[in-house]
Design a binder for these strands. Sequence first.
DNA 1: GCCATGACGTTCC
DNA 2: GGGAACGCCATGG
Length: 133
Amino acid sequence: MNPFYRRIYRVVRRIPTGRVATYGAVARLAGRPGAARTVGWALSALPVEADVPWWRVINAAGQISLAHRRPASVLQRALLLRERVEFSNRGSGGGSVDLGVYGWPAGAYDSEGAPHTRAASSRKRRKLKGLRT
DNA sequence: GCCATGACGTTCC
DNA sequence: GGGAACGCCATGG
């Protein structure tokens, strides 16, 4: 097992009860920003018997990604609810977690969490720089 | 070593 | 706000 995985698992273990972290945050804390996919991959290979709160790891949108892919989605939601993590019924998407409240580490998301929301400001900045042509 | 895939993220339309 | 495209790192064939 590569040190990345162990690091990722360690980071996930550091997630306190009642809090959730995004793949990107975990990857960043693991020392590999941008390796969010790798984090998900590592968790996919994670055995259920492992003492790693994988259910506290969600995507940047504050939603569970293993919706139809894995039946564990229901389990994850149940576990999160058990952790007192509320799901904001944003329409009928199945519910999303407010990273501004339950996000971990605190301050990483602060008052934002939605990628597109944050992208709005970043986009302008990128356009201003005049990149990509 | 190259191509394809994945529990994701960011940016553009 | 929603959908599509590109990029990211690591694994598997």
